[in-house]
């Protein structure tokens, strides 16, 4: 990590073990992204979940989805702007323009369409007053075909868009902030069952942590990637160094007996949130599966050339 004390944790070459699991002396390399938090509310949790599920679908990686988005946390009615059950989502993109474009498209198809829902900015407060903003209702209001109504309440603009169940309430815009994408760790196990258990234990520990999401299915991906490909049109291709079936064909980082690897990829609003998630996830995986097939924990990086945020495993777990 860029601003952590490099002397923290074991010295180079020293082995760090947690419950018998080898923690590799390496780091996860993450990069700057643009981020926002949105809140979906509805008359009941079921509609809110449907909308959030649709909104965060096909939002796993910017490589092809252009947006990484997932549920951050469910919200109690007292935590939402309109006092109804809600869900907070975090979204990350490579640029502010792309973030706005993708959020508006998804909100128009997944939230506007969902019965009883409303859409609000989730990063409010004086600390965000000077941040640039992305449009929400600013664009969606035109669905009202001239019958939309604007309301400025406590300094915030909302749009009331007439729809067939009443009105869709949508905040005019939402702040966007600098976020971090690509925090990660690799769970290396003797087989896929052990890797699955470790990954689920890690995600159970990560889910309550605020300010961070793991956008892949269940928070986990098996298709970790390296940059580039033998095919010029592909920007990323399989991470052959961690593919057990390619041992002996390409240069492998897997040792004997390491037969399955799963990766947890994390996007966060701050370095601290990603650190907290990596620490909790790795610790939980090791505690749960250290003596049940989880052999090592590593992390993906590109030699430090791609992103300026470096999350060193030994420092995080020290």
């Amino acid at each position: 990590m860029s601003d952590l004390n490099p002397s923290a944790g074991p010295s180079p070459g020293e082995t760090l073990l947690i419950n018998g699991v080898r923690i590799e002396p390496t780091f996860a390399e993450a990069f700057d992204m643009k981020a926002t938090r949105i809140i979906i509310t509805a008359n009941d949790e079921i509609w809110a979940e449907h909308a959030a599920s649709a909104m965060s679908g096909f939002g796993t990686s910017v490589i092809d989805c252009k947006l990484e988005i997932d549920v951050e946390t469910p919200l109690w009615p007292k935590q939402t702007p309109d006092g109804r059950p809600g869900i907070a989502l975090l979204a990350f993109a490579m640029s502010g323009d792309e973030l706005e474009k993708q959020i508006v498209r998804r909100a128009g198809q997944c939230v506007l369409t969902c019965p009883t829902t409303a859409l609000f900015a989730g990063l409010e407060g004086p600390q965000y007053a000077d941040e640039k903003r992305i449009g929400l209702g600013k664009s969606l209001r035109y669905f009202g075909d001239g019958h939309q109504i604007s309301k400025v309440i406590d300094g915030k603009r909302f749009w009331r868009i007439p729809v067939m169940d009443g009105e869709f309430i949508c905040q005019h815009d939402a702040p966007r902030v600098s976020g971090i994408g690509g925090g990660n760790f690799l769970l290396i196990a003797k087989d896929i069952d052990a890797a699955s258990r470790a990954a689920r234990a890690a995600m159970a520990a990560i889910e309550p942590i605020p300010g961070v999401i793991a956008p892949f299915p269940g928070g986990v991906t098996r298709s970790g990637s390296k940059i580039g490909s033998k095919y010029p049109s592909l920007v990323a291709s399989t991470n052959d160094a961690y593919c057990p079936t390619l041992r002996g064909v390409t240069e492998s980082k897997l040792r004997d007996g390491e037969n399955a690897v799963l990766e947890i990829v994390l996007d966060g609003l701050t370095e601290q949130s990603i650190c907290a998630a990596m620490r909790a996830g790795i610790q939980s995986a090791c505690d749960c599966c250290g003596e049940h097939g989880l052999i090592a924990v590593s992390a993906g990086n590109y030699g430090g050339k791609l992103g300026r945020h470096h999350f060193h495993l030994h420092e995080i777990l020290a």
């Binding site: 702007p81 309109d82 109804r84 406590d154 909302f158 009331r160 009105e167 309430i169």
Partner: peptide, 11 residues
């Protein structure tokens, strides 16, 4: 009419 926007007022 069910004015859901009224829930946004805090004053």
């Amino acid at each position: 009419f069910e004015p859901s926007f009224l829930a946004l007022y805090q004053d």
